[in-house]
C-alpha cells in the first residue's frame, strides 16, 4: 500500500506495525478474503479471456501470437452482427416493456397499499425464487403447439387450429424475459417511490398542481433513479441470456449468448467466443453508461 516511506527500515517496520493496528488495516483485513477471491476468480479469468481473444485456435491448442482477426470476424461477419443487434433489440424491448409494466404496480404498492406492503412485495418476489430454467420452460409449455394456451383455446372452441406464431420466435423471447425479470424491475422502482417524502406531493398540490401535473413534475423525476436502476438491472443480464432464446426462441430468436456458448462448445473456437463475449460486454457497458449519463442530464433539466 502507500505506507512505504523512503527512509530506513526501522521506520518502515514501526509505521507498518502502527498501520496494522489502525482502523484502515482492520477494514483491509476483513475485506481481503472476498476481495482476493473476486480478484482470483473474476478479474484474473476476465483478463485471461481478454488475452485469449487475441489468440488463434488450432485444433486443440492455441496459436499464441497476437491477432485482431477474432474481433474482425466478430464485428464484420453478418451472422454475428445480426445476433448482436437482435440481442440488443430484444433486450431493449424487454427492458422498456418490463419497466413500463412494472411502474404502475410499484406505484400501487407504494402509494395505495396501506397495511400489507411487505406481503405484496413478498408475493411479487416469490416467483423469482423458483428455478429460472423451469419458469422459461413453462412458457414453452404454455405457448407450444400442443401447449396449454393452444389446447385451452381449442377446448374452449375459440380456435380450431393451434396458433403457431406464438412460439419459437423473437416475440416469445420478449414475453418470457419480460415475465422472468418482472420482480427485478418492480423492486428498485418501489424502493425509490418509497423514499419520496409524501409532504413534497402535498406541497405540489398546495402550489396548484393537479394529480397528473404533480405526477410528472414531482413523482416521476424523484422516482427516476429507481427507473434507471430497474432498466440497467433488466437490460444488462438479458443481453447475455442463454436459456430463454435456446428454449423458446427457435432459430429466429437466437441471441449472442447462444453463439458464444457454441464457440466454447461444439465449434471449439474459444478465441472467437472470447472476442464475441468481450465485444458484447463492451457494448452493454457503453449503453449502460449512456443510459445513466443521459438520465442524469434529463433529471438536471427537469430540476430547473
Amino acid at each position: 500500500m502507500s505506507a512505504v516511506p523512503a527512509e530506513g527500515k526501522p521506520l518502515l517496520g514501526g509505521r507498518f506495525r502502527f498501520w496494522l493496528k489502525s482502523e484502515e488495516a482492520s477494514g483491509f483485513k476483513l475485506l481481503s478474503p472476498a476481495f482476493l477471491y473476486a480478484l482470483v476468480m473474476l478479474a484474473a479469468p476476465l483478463a485471461m479471456v481478454v488475452v485469449i481473444s487475441f489468440w488463434t485456435q488450432e485444433l486443440i491448442d492455441f496459436d499464441r501470437s497476437f491477432t485482431l482477426k477474432n474481433y474482425e470476424e466478430a464485428w464484420t461477419d453478418p451472422i454475428y452482427r445480426v445476433l448482436m443487434l437482435r440481442s440488443l433489440a430484444i433486450s431493449g424491448i424487454v427492458t422498456v416493456t418490463t419497466v413500463i409494466l412494472a411502474f404502475p404496480i410499484a406505484y400501487f404498492v407504494s402509494f395505495h397499499v396501506k397495511h400489507h406492503k411487505p406481503l405484496w412485495i413478498l408475493l411479487i418476489t416469490i416467483p423469482f425464487w423458483t428455478s429460472y430454467l423451469l419458469r422459461v420452460f413453462l412458457w414453452k409449455v404454455i405457448l407450444g403447439y400442443n401447449g396449454v394456451l393452444n389446447s385451452g383455446l381449442i377446448e374452449l372452441g375459440l380456435i380450431e387450429e393451434p396458433l403457431t406464431f406464438i412460439l419459437y420466435n423473437a416475440t416469445t423471447v420478449v414475453i418470457t424475459l419480460a415475465h422472468a425479470w418482472a420482480p427485478f424491475a418492480i423492486l428498485p422502482i418501489f424502493v425509490s417511490l418509497e423514499k419520496i417524502d409524501r409532504s413534497l406531493l402535498e406541497a405540489a398540490e398546495d402550489l396548484g398542481d393537479g394529480p397528473i401535473q404533480r405526477f410528472f413534475r414531482v413523482t416521476l423525476p424523484l422516482a427516476m433513479p429507481g427507473v434507471i436502476a430497474a432498466s440497467l438491472i433488466v437490460f444488462i443480464p438479458t443481453v447475455g441470456d442463454y436459456v430463454t432464446p435456446r428454449l423458446v426462441g427457435g432459430n429466429s430468436g437466437l441471441m449472442i449468448a447462444n453463439i458464444i456458448q457454441l464457440q466454447f462448445g461444439q465449434a471449439s473456437n474459444a478465441p472467437l467466443g472470447a472476442a464475441l463475449a468481450l465485444s458484447a460486454m463492451v457494448i452493454v457497458a457503453a449503453i449502460s453508461v449512456l443510459i445513466v449519463w443521459s438520465s442524469r442530464r434529463f433529471t438536471k433539466r427537469q430540476a430547473r
Binding site: 473476486a38 484474473a44 476476465l46 479471456v49 449468448a257 463475449a277 458484447a280
Partner: peptide
C-alpha cells in the same frame, strides 16, 4: 468490484471461469 457479478451477465462469468 466484489459486487460486480451482480450486474455481469452470467454467461460472461461462466465463460471466464471455464477459460481459466
Amino acid at each position: 468490484f466484489i459486487m460486480l457479478p451482480l450486474v455481469l451477465p452470467e454467461i460472461i462469468v461462466a465463460v471466464a471461469l471455464v477459460v481459466v
